[in-house]
Every structure is written in C-alpha cells, then in structure tokens.
Design a protein around this nucleic acid. Structure first.
Lengths: 240, 240
DNA sequence: CTTTTCAGGTCAATGGCGTTGTCATAAGGT
DNA sequence: ACCTTATGACAACGCCATTGACCTGAAAAG
C-alpha cells in the first residue's frame, strides 16, 4: 500500500500543477465521472485521467492509494447522489420503493461508472448511511432482526444487480448494443410456432416488454412478498 | 479484427507446438477454464494461457480473433450447461426455482465469463430454448400472456443480474475481494450505536448474512409474490 | 520578515499486458 | 517428390499501473 496519501481534511498545501490545475479528491472524482460519461469505461486510466486533469498521472497517487481506491470513492459518490434529499414518509413499503428506484436511477445516470461501482462494498460514509437508513425502515416496520437483515440483503443486492444489468446495456459499445436490442424483433419475433409455441404466442408482448427494465416489477414483487411475510409474522397463531 | 482465424471445422493441418501440444479451439477453451478455476480471474491472460498450453501466446490468435472472442466462446458453453438434463416436474414454482438456481450456479462456476455473458442477448439456440421453456412454465401455470411475459422478464433479469453480481464478487482481483468482504467485520461491526443504531443492533447478523448470496431469498420472494398474483387472478370475484 | 520544512507535483523506469508483422517450416493435397 | 500454405514462433509496439528519487514553492515557525 502506498503511503503518499494525506487524508483530504488534513490537506494544507495546495499547489497548482504545471498546467495550473489545483487538485483535490473532489476534482479528481468529478473529472473521472466526466471521463467515463464522455468516453466510456476504457477511458478511465490513470494516464488519461492525469491528462484530463492537466497533471502528471502520478500526482493522482497523492490522493488515492491506487485505482481501486479511486473507484471506491466514485462508488460512494454515486450512493451519495441516490440519497440526496430523501426523507421517510412513515410508510415502509413506499419508503423502500422510493429508495430502490432512486438507487437504480442514480446508477443509470452514470452507466459506465455504475458498471464498475455497483459490485463493490465501500464501507465509506455514504454507504454506511444508506445501510443504516434501510435497516431502520425494516426494523421500524416491525421485522425481527434476522428477517430485517435477510430482506435488507435481498433488497439491496437486487437493486444493485439490476442497476448494473441495466447500466451494462447502456454502456455496451454502440454496435453490440443495437444488435442485442434487435434480437427480439429480428429473431424471436420470427420463430415458428412449431418449434417455439410459447415465444410465437407472445412475440409481440415480448418485443415491447423487453425494451424496458425488469426492475420495477421485480421490486414490486419483492416488496409485496415481504409485506405478506410481515403480516404472517404479526398473526402468530399459525393458520389451518 | 484479426483475419488469421480459420473456422474450426475447416481445419486440416494440425501441427504440434515446440513443446508438443496439438492445439484446437476446444483444447484452448478447456485450458482457459482450468486456468480460471485454479488460479482465479487474473490468471487468464493470453501470455499465461500460451504458457499453460505449451505454445507461443500469439498462436491463440490463430483460433480466436481476440480475447473477447475467446471469452464469448467460453460463455456460450455455460448457457448449454445451465439447461443440461433439466426436466419439468409439473409444479411451476418448483420448476422456476430450479431453473433460477441452475442459471445462477452455471454462471457462478465461471465468474469471469459470466460477467461478459450475463448482459448480452445472443438470440442463439440455447438461449431461445431457455426462453421457450420458462414462458411455457408460466403459461402452463395459468398466467395470462401479458402477465406471463412480465413475470418472465422480471424472473430472467433477476437471475442474470444476480448471476453477474455474484460472479463479479468472485471475479474481483484477490485483494479487492478480500477488502470488500472484510468491510463488514472491520468497519460495520464497529460502528457506534450513537450514530448507527440499526447497524450496531444487527452487526453480528449482517456479518454472517452478507457472506452469502442474496439471490435465493430474492428468488423466493419473487416466486411467492407471483404465486399470490396467480391466486388472485384465479379467484376473479374481488374479495371483501 | 526570514528561514525552514515537507507536501505534493514531476520525471524516469519497471514489468506487465494484448496484439500484430514477419518469418520459417512441416502438413497434406497433388 | 513437390508445392502451397496453414500454423507456430519471434520480436516489437504501444498501452497500462505503480514506484522511487527529485525538486520546488507554500505554509509554518521564529
């Protein structure tokens, strides 16, 4: 591990680069997000980031231990954006629905970054706040701790997993992306009923449905099943 | 794109390498899978694959256009394996549960290939067979077509999304993977109750639960919610 | 206001990677 | 037995992340 990094709040001396930029963790993160948005995932290299910042690539190592450290910082920033201004309504199902959709939306706004970040556990400030909030909603709803933790896990992972899945579609190189979308019309819509009766019968529905994200329905199903479980827990004497 | 590749069925001349191996697409794929299984994601490089084969790295480009081509060839195999020997039991919930877990397991067995494959729509034979099967299960259970298609979409995307999420954890470079796992013990388990009461109250549960995949529960919740919807559809006169 | 110090930007080098242009040679059709 | 050419080998290119040594100017100390 690299020891050159001084924690951001303790920084005193800020010295411009040869090209005049004044660096900071914040500037580096936002430049990285811009680079990802403009030129795709493969554009995020230390060398190109250095060039975009107007600094020597190695200067980045004064702010982040390595590229992974930088990536985790980016991930935490996305989580922060998802939580921005959120407030509980008192209805736990509505709260979780909103949180789930917000996470998904925040990641969709930066598909290239989402693809890299959605899989990581950062342990940083904003992530911890999100974990705390979601657990609070579930425990406040009346789920006993083991159930609350299990449902927290399913809920969060499902949100992140769909965020990455849908981000990947956006982040795909243009030709591959077009090809994948066209498969449903070009290929599945023309399969004969003899060999693929179920696809043939539903082809039109498939073509329109597969254009959208499957997340909203998956989220709704998760929430309604969780709700049913809670109801069962609150009526302890088992039914016939 | 590299034009050196001769399609496998047209190959006539098979010439041993200096070290005596006789190459083929099949040998290269299985060696790559062995390399991945034995030494993890970062072991799959053209150079190391060449070394493992007993051949010059560049010889691989006589069989695959580039590394992506090779990885897709590996991935293609996974789709077939997920479906291998599957048979309907007549119980639609049990069938979907099995199919979901099988997809997840097949991808889990080769995480780095899964990461590339889970996001794509190939439209090829094995994929079409899977779509047909799942739609058949849902329509056979009595879901009307629009509902069948919507639930198909949520079900499949959930399976693929979790497959990619869990594969990504396995495919992470060893240090990053260890760091992510440790976060729950090192960091979350020690947050004070004053600032993070819900995390503090459930820390022990979190540490053990987050080690496992969230997919089995998420799948179960999706299936039970779908089941409830079907029951509601079959009892048309609305309840009190 | 001067002196000291050291954070932080720069430079150069290391060892890895995927990929390709070229060459040499042996396999296999004739 | 002869040719053709597919296929393996070699060497080189331009990327990549990372690091150790250095230099310099901003801030702290007096």
């Amino acid at each position: 591990m690299n020891e050159r990094v001084v924690p951001e709040p303790e920084r005193r001396r800020r010295r411009p680069t040869k090209q005049g930029t004044v660096l900071s963790a914040e500037v580096i993160i936002s430049t990285a997000l811009r680079l990802l948005a403009q030129h795709g995932a493969e554009a995020l290299t230390v060398r190109r980031l250095g060039a975009a910042l107007g600094a020597d690539p190695s200067a980045i190592y004064r702010y982040f231990h390595n590229t992974d450290d930088l990536l985790l910082a980016i991930a935490d920033e996305l989580i922060a954006r998802a939580q921005h201004d959120w407030r509980s309504t008192g209805d736990w199902v509505a709260d979780l629905r909103t949180i789930g959709l917000r996470i998904h939306a925040a990641y969709q706004a930066h598909p290239q970054a989402a693809l890299l970040a959605a899989y990581r556990t950062t342990g940083r400030q904003n992530e911890a706040r999100a974990v705390e909030t979601i657990l609070g909603v579930l425990r406040g709803a009346g789920f006993p701790d083991p159930e609350a933790v299990a449902i927290y896990h399913a809920f969060v992972d499902q949100g992140l997993a769909f965020a990455a899945l849908d981000a990947a579609a956006d982040a795909l190189p243009a030709p591959a992306r077009a090809a994948d979308l066209a498969v449903w019309q070009r290929h599945y819509a023309r399969l004969p009923a003899e060999t693929h009766p179920n696809i043939a019968a539903t082809a039109r529905l498939l073509v329109t449905d597969m254009r959208r994200s499957g997340y909203p329905l998956a989220l709704e199903l998760l929430l309604s099943a969780a709700s049913a479980r809670l109801a069962a827990l609150k009526a302890p004497p088992g039914p016939a």
